[in-house]
Amino acid sequence: KKIKIKIKVYNPETKEVLELEIEVSEEEAEELAKKLAEELEKKGYKIEEVEI
């Protein structure tokens, strides 16, 4: 079964909002969402919402 992940991120420095969407297997979904959120935060983005 495929799971659709939508991530909306906001960069306070540039006032930019990015929306990302990807489909992955159920097993990958939670781990991938967690890794993406961590990487984006390292780059200065503030995570507003992660929906699985």
Rank of each mutant, 00 (worst) to 15 (best):
K46Y: 04
E16T: 11
L40A: 03
I5P: 00
E26A: 09
K8T: 10
K2C: 13
L40E: 00
K2E: 06
E48P: 01
E27Q: 10
E31Q: 10
I47D: 01
E28K: 14
E51Y: 15
V17M: 09
L32W: 10
V24P: 02
V24E: 09
E39K: 03
K4A: 05
E26M: 11
L36H: 02
K1C: 14
K35V: 06
L36I: 07
K15I: 09
Y45L: 03
K6Y: 15
K2Q: 10
K8V: 05
E51S: 11
E38K: 08
E16I: 14
A37K: 10
G44D: 00
E49Q: 11
I7W: 14
K43P: 01
Y10D: 01
K43V: 03
E21M: 13
E27T: 09
E19P: 03
E39N: 03
G44C: 05
N11Y: 03
I22M: 11
L32E: 08
A37H: 04
L18M: 07
E19V: 13
E16F: 15
S25G: 10
L18N: 05
A33H: 04
E19H: 11
T14Y: 05
L20C: 08
K2I: 10
K43E: 04
E26P: 08
K6Q: 03
K1N: 10
L32T: 11
K15A: 06
A33Q: 04
L18T: 05
E21P: 01
P12M: 15
K35Y: 11
V50A: 02
E48I: 13
G44R: 01
I52P: 01
I22E: 08
K4I: 09
V9H: 03
K34L: 07
K42I: 04
S25R: 11
K42R: 14
I7Q: 00
K8E: 01
L36Q: 01
K1M: 13
K1R: 14
V24Q: 02
V17E: 08
V9C: 05
E19T: 14
A37F: 11
I5R: 00
L36F: 12
G44V: 00
A33D: 01
L32Y: 07
E19Q: 10
L36N: 01
K2G: 06
T14E: 03
P12W: 15
I52D: 01
V24K: 02
I47W: 01
I47H: 00
E19N: 13
Y10L: 07
I3R: 14
E41G: 08
I7T: 00
L20W: 08
K6M: 05
K1Q: 04
K46A: 06
E30C: 15
A29V: 09
V17I: 08
K4T: 11
L36A: 03
K1I: 04
E28R: 11
E30F: 14
K4Y: 15
E26T: 04
I22N: 06
E39R: 03
K34E: 03
L36D: 00
K4L: 13
I22C: 13
S25E: 11
E21H: 12
Y10C: 05
L40K: 00
L20F: 13
K8D: 00
E13V: 09
E23G: 08
L20P: 01
K1P: 08
Y10T: 05
V9D: 00
K43H: 05
K34F: 14
K43G: 04
K6H: 08
E51H: 08
K15E: 05
S25F: 08
K35F: 10
K35P: 00
E27I: 08
A33M: 12
E38F: 13
V9E: 00
K46R: 05
E28G: 13
I5K: 00
Y45W: 08
E39H: 05
V24T: 07
L36E: 01
P12Q: 14
T14A: 05
K2A: 08
E16H: 12
E27A: 13
E16C: 14
E27K: 04
K46D: 09
E27G: 13
Y45Q: 01
E31S: 09
A29W: 06
V17P: 04
L20M: 09
E26W: 09
I22H: 09
K2Y: 15
E26C: 11
E49K: 12
I3F: 15
I3T: 11
A37E: 03
K34V: 06
K1F: 15
L36T: 03
E27P: 13
E41D: 03
K35N: 05
L32H: 06
Y45H: 02
S25I: 11
E30Y: 14
K46F: 05
V50W: 09
S25M: 09
E13Q: 06
E13P: 06
K42H: 04
E48M: 15
V24N: 03
E49V: 10
E30D: 04
I5L: 14
S25Q: 10
K8G: 02
K1S: 07
I22K: 07
E41K: 13
E16V: 11
E23D: 11
N11C: 15
K46C: 14
V9M: 14
K2F: 14
E23V: 12
K4F: 15
N11V: 08
E21L: 15
K35A: 04
A37D: 01
E19G: 09
E23I: 06
L18V: 03
A33I: 12
E13W: 15
E13H: 13
E26R: 05
A33K: 06
E23Y: 13
E27D: 14
L40P: 00
L20E: 02
K35H: 09
E21V: 13
E30N: 12
V50Y: 05
K8F: 06
Y45I: 02
T14M: 05
I5S: 00
V24L: 03
G44T: 00
P12S: 14
V50L: 11
